[in-house]
Design a protein around this nucleic acid. Structure first.
Lengths: 226, 226
DNA sequence: GCGCATCGTCAAGGAAGCATCAAGGCGCCA
DNA sequence: TGGCGCCTTGATGCTTCCTTGACGATGCGC
């Protein structure tokens, strides 16, 4: 569930936003001025911030600058002012989008979804490393190393291992492996599994005939043991 | 200098946009329909695309989908339609921002700047310089040097190296390289990869037949090793 | 203990991918 | 318009990888 922080000083509007957002499946937190908004952002770690520029204490652009000092969370700015430079200023200060009042709720929702999606694109490529025993699996590089030493894998071997690694500690069924590595047509070619499991073991295990990492569950599938 | 591709079928508006953008320091290319827009994007490699939804041949959302198939370049959508779902649809399809006609030129400029900034944040955590072993890669100048000595690269060689450098330490798939360097049509021309990988190695490596920087992962792609 | 299904291992042939050299063609600039 | 740089394409030899088959080992139910 995505988390959103709404910073708005008008109680009626803030409540309306919160209701609509919760109905759309968001986890919502509301702040009614700039200062509490900044501290809420620090504690709540929202996926996106909806910031009204017309705040009583701080100028909206100051809040924006305060956020940008330490986080790159997407910020969508909301404002009644139809003209004027603050719109431009907000975008240049690092706002991700800008919506003017009055606005349509579904358009606002779409812009928030877009902002979250962009934020996750920026943040997520850090899915890159996993340690399993003496193995170090690097998803970005599609490489695996044992005790710091790189082990060369073929594309199919890597696809097999990656699937197990993304489900480390969980049993992955024979059928799922075949479908995801070789394609849905190969769902019955269980021989492939044995050949490639053996190849992986020869490369990864200290004692390939008594595997510690790549464990078979007869008739079911394989598990990468943590 | 930032590059922008304007896709708009109204000659008067397109010209006005081009003039204003060039005055603001952009390098501008204009396409007058969806198809030529898509092919222009493949060749021109813009930093941002300004897309008018009211095109004669393709629906604007089709153009957007066509772009999103192979690139994450920021797209700002321009439309006369004040209401209606296409606004929401465009944002959900992967547009980065949305501006309705009539619009203020300076607001549009600000949104374009913001879009480019976000795109660059996503694409290149490092804006200007990168050291890899004895190599020094300067993104701003599009130059690479080894032990302080400049190495001349052709445009295609540079595009190849730049892509790897922006993902240094990460494996870049064959398909992604082909799409981003040569365009989506060339996604299967793996021969190009070998020719240009060899050329880069001859220029960059001490021992081109035992590469230290530009490493092949057979069947997968290439990595620039840090 | 026997049979059947499943698993592990080894090996070989062919397909796909890679590295390299080189020549033709195209556009661009002097 | 001639030369040059660059991109494209082809040919060749080599390496790597996938697929497939054969055979023995293991485990479970009857």
């Amino acid at each position: 569930m995505n988390k959103i922080l709404v910073i708005d000083d008008e109680p009626a509007l803030a409540r309306a936003l919160a209701v609509n957002l919760r109905a759309a499946g968001w986890e919502v937190e509301v702040a009614h001025d700039g200062r509490s908004g900044l501290s809420a952002a620090a504690g709540f770690h929202p996926d996106v911030v909806l910031l009204d520029l017309g705040l009583p204490d701080l100028d909206g652009t100051e809040v924006l600058a305060g956020l940008r000092g330490w986080t790159s969370v997407p910020v969508v700015v909301l404002s009644a002012r139809q003209h004027g430079d603050d719109k431009i200023e907000a975008l240049d200060l690092g706002a991700d989008d800008y919506v003017t009042k009055p606005f349509a709720m579904d358009e606002l929702m779409a812009r928030l979804r877009a902002a979250v999606r962009r934020g996750q694109e920026t943040a997520s490529p850090q899915t890159s490393n996993l340690s399993v025993g003496e193995l170090e699996i690097d998803f970005a590089r599609k490489r695996v190393a044992k005790r710091g030493e790189d082990i060369r894998l073929t594309p199919t071997e890597w696809a097999f291992l990656e699937l197990l690694a993304r489900n480390v500690g969980r049993l992955v069924s024979r059928e799922q492996i075949l479908k995801e590595v070789w394609g849905p047509v190969y769902a019955k070619e269980t021989h492939y599994l044995r050949v490639y499991a053996a190849q992986l073991r020869r490369k990864l295990e200290d004692d390939p005939s008594h595997p510690r990492y790549l464990v078979t569950s007869s008739g079911l599938g394989y598990t990468l043991e943590p």
